[in-house]
């Protein structure tokens, strides 16, 4: 799976309240609607700036805080193709795998706002096309790859009725 798009850069410790605020997420299960408010408290213009396929890039501990799955779902519905960060908070990490949002863990110091990136998830390489450099990405454990390759945890359960990693 090749992903290509432009970078929207954020700092460390982006929490799930910033990704989608509690004042919106309790109202509806319509993720297209919630997507309009993604990152609103950090950048009110964010949703309107995204071109389909773009990346969110951040520092450490992306997705910390509440367990709300609306966070990855709203990101997916804002047409972001993947989140790239130095590290992720663990509940957010699980939620992304379960909902099918690719996560890329790597050093993000050499990625800036507006850079164009191409990511090859199979090969585990991120190309920063704007800077002409390649960055190695941390591979996902087998269990998570299995859930992602089934299309998320809902599809995994539809297929097997329970967990099946054999």
């Amino acid at each position: 799976m090749d992903l290509k798009g432009y970078v929207h850069k954020f700092s460390d410790d982006v929490n799930t309240d910033y990704i989608i605020s509690g004042r919106h997420k309790f109202k509806t299960l319509d993720m297209k609607e919630l997507a309009k408010y993604v990152m609103e408290d950090l950048d009110p213009e964010f949703y309107s700036k995204v071109i389909s396929g773009d990346f969110i890039v951040a520092g450490r501990n992306f997705g910390c805080g509440s367990s709300r799955e609306q966070a990855p779902l709203a990101i997916i519905n804002a047409n972001i193709s993947a989140v790239i960060a130095k590290s992720f908070a663990r509940i957010f990490y699980r939620n992304c795998i379960n909902t099918g949002l690719p996560l890329i863990e790597c050093d993000t110091d050499q990625i800036d706002e507006g850079d164009e990136l191409e990511v090859d998830l199979q090969q585990g390489v991120l190309h920063n096309l704007s800077k002409g450099i390649d960055i190695t990405i941390t591979p996902l454990p087998a269990v998570m790859l299995k859930i992602l390759s089934d299309g998320g945890l809902v599809e995994h359960f539809k297929k097997y009725g329970s967990f099946n990693f054999d």
Partner: peptide, 30 residues
């Protein structure tokens, strides 16, 4: 628990941890 503060019950020696909604659904079923 599908709430990040599910870790609260650790105080009574429970390994309890927060998960999201799809993990909760998987737990409800299996």
């Amino acid at each position: 628990g599908a709430d990040s503060h599910t870790c609260t019950y650790g105080a009574i020696n429970t390994f309890s941890t927060g998960v999201g909604s799809t993990d909760l659904a998987a737990g409800l079923i299996s």
